[in-house]
Amino acid sequence: QTVHVKGVQYHFPNPEEAVKFALKVAKDLGGRVEFHGDEIHVE
């Protein structure tokens, strides 16, 4: 599972961890989380 944050990719073997990370980052940055297939983008 890959999380993209402002052009940087973070790889997580566990999808659940990836989602938790993405939600935390989005909250910290005041952004939103978008799901694109296997990828999660924080915009």
Rank of each mutant, 00 (worst) to 15 (best):
V42R: 01
E16S: 09
V5W: 08
D38M: 11
G31T: 05
N14G: 06
V3K: 00
G31K: 03
A22Q: 00
E34I: 15
V5C: 07
P15F: 15
K24R: 09
Q1W: 15
A18I: 01
V3E: 00
P13V: 11
D38E: 10
K20L: 10
G7I: 03
Q9F: 10
V19T: 07
A26F: 02
K27H: 12
E34C: 15
Y10C: 08
G7Y: 03
R32W: 15
E17D: 12
V25S: 05
Q9W: 11
I40P: 02
V19D: 03
E16I: 10
F35T: 05
T2P: 02
H41Y: 14
A22N: 00
E17L: 10
F12W: 03
F12H: 02
D38C: 15
K27L: 11
K6E: 12
H41Q: 04
A22P: 03
F21C: 09
D28E: 14
Q1T: 15
H4W: 15
G30F: 06
Y10K: 03
A26C: 09
V5G: 00
V42H: 00
Q9M: 13
K27E: 11
Y10R: 03
Q1C: 15
P15L: 15
V5A: 04
H41C: 08
V42N: 01
G7V: 02
N14F: 05
E17V: 06
G7D: 06
Q1F: 15
L29V: 08
Q9H: 12
L23K: 12
G30T: 04
L29F: 09
F12R: 00
G30I: 04
E39Q: 12
K6N: 15
D28R: 13
E17K: 05
P13A: 13
E39I: 11
E39L: 07
V42D: 01
V3W: 00
L23P: 03
E43D: 08
H4L: 13
G31Q: 04
H36A: 06
K24E: 12
P13H: 10
E34S: 12
V25Y: 06
E39T: 10
E16P: 04
Q1D: 04
F21E: 04
V8L: 10
K27Y: 10
K24L: 10
D28P: 02
K6L: 14
V33D: 00
N14T: 14
H41L: 08
K27P: 01
L29W: 08
P13W: 11
G30Q: 08
F21K: 03
V25L: 12
A26P: 00
G37Y: 06
A22G: 02
V3Y: 00
H11K: 08
L23T: 12
K6S: 12
N14H: 05
E16D: 10
G37M: 07
D38R: 11
K24V: 07
L23W: 11
L29Q: 07
E43M: 15
E34H: 14
K20G: 04
E39V: 11
Q1H: 14
V5D: 01
A26Q: 03
H41M: 08
E16N: 07
A22K: 00
